[in-house]
Write a protein that binds this DNA or RNA. Sequence first.
DNA 1: GCTGAAAGTAAGTTTCG
DNA 2: CGAAACTTACTTTCAGC
Lengths: 155, 155
Amino acid sequence: MEMDQTDKQLLHLLQSDAKQTTKELAVQLGMSNTAVYERVRKLEREGIIKGYTAIVDREKVNRSFVVFCNIRLTQHTRENVREFEEEVAGLTEVQECYHVSGDYDYILKVHVANMEDYRNFMVTKLTDLKHIGNTHSIFMIGEVKHSTVIGIDRS
Amino acid sequence: MEMDQTDKQLLHLLQSDAKQTTKELAVQLGMSNTAVYERVRKLEREGIIKGYTAIVDREKVNRSFVVFCNIRLTQHTRENVREFEEEVAGLTEVQECYHVSGDYDYILKVHVANMEDYRNFMVTKLTDLKHIGNTHSIFMIGEVKHSTVIGIDRS
DNA sequence: GCTGAAAGTAAGTTTCG
DNA sequence: CGAAACTTACTTTCAGC
């Protein structure tokens, strides 16, 4: 799809605050209500906007203990990979999971309340997964930046 | 703040789809319109819900090349840390930045279009930052899970 | 693809049980 | 906490450019 500068601005605005009304967006973009409305619809229809979500304060819901858990599999057969990925996706503590290059195969971003819960997660859930070889945990000391906005200048 | 089971369910629903009407939420929770309305307001007022955002498809806006960039600082004086964190927060390619334990001081999650853009980012932006010692890039091969929902069972 | 106006619908407030 | 009536505001459609 062809996205012009207005679409990019619109995406930026909606990523910053999705609860803005069409009218508010229209003022900021210097267009009419309807024009903006149709552009938003198009972005949704084409799947460029995949959905809308509420941003929850991790501290306030007691999930501020964040760990990057690096995992190596024992063997990389197609079946092992499939099984591992399926199981890991089902764990609620695992916020994100990426297949990566380098020393380890996967990086998991795990959100729990505290070290005790992380220990429980490791002992009762992670080690239950099949095909797990080595793991290496990196603990988050502080969050410097976590943007909900993907920069979309130059296409 | 005291959050009961209903609040947690409500947060889950709003994280899954923030565009649901109060009425739709009320049906799913088995309560009245007003009750849900006031709970949402309370969650917003208390900052448990920090805001609402549109979820943009990275592939479709040409930002599917994701790299975890590990960074070590040369010296960890208070001033160096402050300067580094301030500068890195200003880079649009840096989606997330965490201060972490382990071999490296920081993990950056960088979103660009392709390897060429990543090279440009490294050469023209990252190495311009002060106090940077060593860096180590881990490339994302595949995204297994990226949840917008923080699991909030047991408080 | 844009504008402006009109019709339809939902949000938000208030009052009462 | 829930129901109903009410006010306001936004969404969605349409004719016309």
